[in-house]
């Protein structure tokens, strides 16, 4: 999980994730480092602000193949959906 620190997230967030999720899921998350970082980079690029909240509440998104994530967003007007997600994180479920 150290790679999350390198990507600018806090130790506190990592601790919260470990409390919230089953440790086997956290372990799998750490093994999929490359893909997780790709998803984080993509989210940053399209302008999603509360990536930390998504890590805490939708960890499974980060373990989907990056291409699947991109395809899901491409089905929408990206700017519009990102603005909606930034206003209300629950809008991620519209993707």
């Amino acid at each position: 999980m150290k790679f999350l620190l390198e990507d600018g997230f806090s130790q506190d967030l990592i601790q919260q994730m470990k409390t919230r999720y089953d440790m086997a899921i956290i372990y799998q998350f750490s093994l999929e480092e490359e893909n997780v970082r790709d998803v984080i980079r993509y989210f940053k690029r399209i302008g999603i602000e509360r990536i930390d909240l998504l890590l805490l509440t939708r960890i499974e998104i980060f373990m989907k193949d990056i291409n699947e994530v991109k395809d899901a967003f491409l089905r929408h007007n990206i700017k519009k959906i990102v603005d909606e997600i930034n206003l209300d994180i629950n809008k991620i479920d519209c993707v």
Binding site: R20, Y21, T57, E60, I61, K64, E68, V69, A72, D93
Partner: peptide, 16 residues
């Protein structure tokens, strides 16, 4: 099928 995730499964993953 169109959705990336499932609300219900997200609930299952969370323990709160």
């Amino acid at each position: 099928e169109g959705q990336l995730c499932s609300n219900m499964f997200s609930c299952f993953l969370s323990n709160y």
